[in-house]
């Protein structure tokens, strides 16, 4: 049965945890492995002694395959239990990367129905293994921790009014969208909403395009690089404005971040077609005015605005 953790009914705190925690935060690091010269019985003994259900087969730190309980049962059935593991191990192993969000691990478990996934680091070396038990255990720890914080908060009287510095508004249309770290599932939704608002307001198509490019890039930046953030969209008669504010970790080298081709994205983010170092340069290029502020570890705020052509001209088009 799939873990009921990644669906529409999952409380947002849990969903956020699933994106905030990485595979490496949750995986088991102490590994029981065999090399290819061991026989299946060695793997079976390892499983029995350590109450585990799968043993990676390695050569140094390189993963060659995995022997699962199923492989052992089959070998016992066929009398192969004294054969070398490399004859009977599963070779095409589905693996996870250590810096993937936990949500990925969960969706892999549902997709492939394996009980465990070996975890590799950036260099392809085996660094751990993750099972659904690891995930549940760490979620419970995180939930306990969160409950403690909530109980703490209940003791203190209500904090005084939130000191939110309000940007001067220009807006008739005003909307705010939230982006979560690594939530590729929902990425793009804010931008298409913003585009729809512009279409409804009869903004000319070239300007809509510029706004869409900026909002999409800012949104993807928050999904890929930030700990989550929000994008506010405001539109008045003569100007539209996007304010993207995230809650950390901030940009170390702003100048580099504005240079085309500079990127700090990980390999698997790049494999999805992102992280080419074009986000901020693209945003700056399409905006009529652009400003960026960033501080470590507090976060980054990008504000960009777009001049809208006068009403009269829009009505003609």
């Amino acid at each position: 049965m799939p873990l009921p953790l990644n669906g529409d009914n999952t409380p947002s705190f849990i969903s956020e945890l699933l994106y905030r925690l990485k595979v490496r935060d949750v995986m088991t690091r102490s590994l029981f492995t065999v090399n290819k010269d061991h026989c299946l019985r060695d793997a079976q003994n390892l499983m029995k002694q350590n109450t585990i259900t799968g043993v990676p087969v390695v050569e140094g730190h390189r993963l060659l395959g995995i022997v699962s309980m199923d492989d052992i049962i089959r070998a016992l059935d066929l009398g192969n239990i004294d054969h070398k593991v490399d004859k009977h191990m599963t070779r095409n192993v589905t693996v996870l990367e250590d810096d993937m969000p936990l949500a990925f691990a969960l969706s892999y478990m549902e997709k492939y129905h394996f009980g465990r996934f070996p975890v590799l680091d950036k260099t392809g070396e085996l660094v751990g293994i993750i099972t659904s038990r690891d995930i549940i255990l760490h979620l419970l720890i995180a939930m306990n921790h969160e409950m403690e914080i909530m109980e703490e908060k209940l003791k203190v009287p209500e904090s005084p009014e939130q000191t939110q510095v309000a940007e001067p508004t220009i807006g008739i249309v005003k909307k705010e969208f939230v982006n979560r770290k690594f939530d590729f599932e929902n990425a793009g939704r804010p931008s298409s909403e913003i585009k729809k608002l512009c279409v409804a307001a009869k903004v000319d198509s070239k300007t809509i395009r510029r706004i869409a490019v900026a909002s999409y890039e800012l949104e993807m930046n928050q999904v890929i690089h930030s700990n989550g953030g929000s994008i506010a969209f405001e539109m008045g008669p003569s100007q539209a404005r996007l304010i993207a504010a995230d809650c950390g970790p901030g940009i170390e080298d702003l100048e580099a971040a504005l240079r085309e081709g500079f990127s700090t994205a990980t390999e698997w983010v790049r494999s999805l077609g992102f992280g080419a170092g074009m986000g901020l340069p693209n945003t700056k290029r399409v905006s009529d005015s652009f400003s960026i502020e960033s501080s470590l570890p507090k976060g980054t705020t990008v504000t960009c605005s777009f001049n809208l052509s006068p009403r009269g001209e829009q009505d003609v088009s």
């Binding site: 793009g188 298409s192 585009k195 999409y216």
Partner: peptide, 13 residues
């Protein structure tokens, strides 16, 4: 790029 984000980009442009 066979994933959902491609659709988002396609729709935006």
């Amino acid at each position: 790029q066979a994933h959902k984000n491609t659709v988002a980009v396609a729709s935006l442009f």
